[in-house]
Computed example of a mutant assay.
Amino acid sequence: MTEKSNFSRRKFLTNAAALGAVGVIGANALVSCSEKKKTVELNLPPLLDQAPDGKPLKAGVIGCGGRGSGAALDFLNAGPNLVIHALGDVFQDRIDDCRN
């Protein structure tokens, strides 16, 4: 006589999802009911359209294929005093193409 269990993966996943939703909703309800509201102020620097003029910034490119070369060009076009200082790739021909 073998008894077949009524517990299946579908029931397990349904119960786990329901328990997770209750946990998230319950935690938010507890936090929102507290009297003290904490506000966090972030003092982030302003986002600039171009790199500021100043000391030269050096960058290295790892992977001189299409994405690496494009990223290098984007870096160089981002502002004044930007220099690609090093190139690295597995294939020498890609390094040579990127250098040109």
Rank of each mutant, 00 (worst) to 15 (best):
M1C: 02
T2K: 03
E3M: 04
K4P: 00
N6K: 04
F7M: 07
F7E: 05
S8F: 00
S8Q: 02
R10M: 02
K11H: 04
L13M: 05
L13F: 06
T14G: 00
T14N: 05
N15E: 10
A17T: 06
A17G: 01
A18S: 06
L19T: 02
G20N: 08
V22M: 03
V22N: 00
V22R: 01
G23W: 02
V24G: 00
V24D: 02
N28T: 03
N28A: 05
A29W: 12
L30M: 14
V31N: 09
V31Q: 13
S32W: 12
S32V: 07
S32N: 12
S34V: 10
S34C: 12
S34Q: 15
E35R: 14
E35V: 08
E35K: 15
K38E: 11
T39G: 00
E41T: 04
E41D: 03
L44P: 00
P45K: 06
P46Y: 03
P46V: 02
L47P: 00
L47S: 09
L48A: 10
D49L: 06
D49F: 06
Q50Y: 05
A51N: 04
P52W: 01
D53A: 14
D53T: 07
G54R: 04
G54Y: 06
K55V: 03
P56E: 14
P56L: 10
P56V: 09
K58V: 14
G60A: 15
V61T: 09
I62N: 08
I62Y: 13
G63Y: 12
C64N: 06
G66L: 10
R67M: 13
G68H: 11
S69T: 13
A71Q: 14
A72K: 12
A72T: 09
L73T: 13
D74N: 15
D74Q: 15
L76S: 11
L76N: 11
N77F: 09
A78V: 04
A78R: 11
G79S: 09
P80S: 15
P80K: 15
N81I: 04
L82F: 06
H85I: 02
L87E: 03
L87N: 00
V90N: 06
V90T: 12
V90M: 09
V90Q: 08
V90S: 06
F91H: 07
F91E: 15
F91V: 07
F91P: 00
D93V: 00
R94N: 10
R94P: 00
I95N: 04
D96H: 04
D96S: 07
D96L: 08
D97A: 14
R99H: 11
